[in-house]
Write a protein that binds this DNA or RNA. Sequence first.
DNA 1: ATCTATTCCTGGCTGC
DNA 2: TGCAGCCAGGAATAGA
Length: 264
Amino acid sequence: MPELPEVETIVRSVAPRLVGREIRQARFYSRLVLKGDATKTAARLRGRRIQAVSRHGKFIVIQLSGGLTLAIHLGMTGGLLWDAEPGPHARAVFDLDAGRLVYDDPRQFGRIELSTSLPERAARLGPDALAIGAKEFSTRLAQRRGHIKPLLLNQAFLRGLGNIYTDESLFSARIHPLASVERLGPARIRRLYAAIQQVLQAAVDAGGSSISDYVDADGRAGSFQVQHHVYGKEGAPCSRCGTPIRRIVVGQRGTHYCPKCQRA
DNA sequence: ATCTATTCCTGGCTGC
DNA sequence: TGCAGCCAGGAATAGA
């Protein structure tokens, strides 16, 4: 599933090839498009020049000439493919003056929105998980309560973390996914902050995690999955203490942790 | 604010 | 081998 490191990897590989290009034609599968129908969105895109491509949490943000912003969220199984032949799961195709960008998404949880600025659903999110400072992280945390894992998944609190990197970060920080936010002391908060930064940065460096079918814009798989310590490791020995990794459900999400290293 | 359940969707897996 | 049934989950939404 594309989370911050996967989206960052895609943006890095695709940005140099997109910037400066002109959209000759765009085609959309309607379910993908938010706010306005697919045909009109495609018509508004025609002839626009791509000025910048960036990441906003898990959103890919494409700045276009004429003051338009195209925001792409990959959902669970979305991906951007450069110069690929549209396959059976292609949901959008952008033909450029040089090259082609294909949006592929088997499960169709991804969304695309064209607007005059960053769409509200992206603008209202919390600070970026890889850009926030330690002090701001701790300040924001102090204003919240409840279990730590659902909070880390809450994009309005912090944008970019998903299920994989939340589990990996909590393992690295030795914090139980059900730990109460209000009872995390300064030491554990510092550890959590450092863990999030370290895990995300290492994942970006590895080109993301390829669990099922994630690939970058050139079809390359990421390799961070080999560095996973808990995600998808139920029953396997903990890399730190040998205790079998446990899987529970927290907030309807599969949650993986070491019952010994991550005490409640 | 926080929590839970529900919806969207289909490839891949399980079990018979 | 075939197939029904279940599961995975990011985010929006509704209701408590």
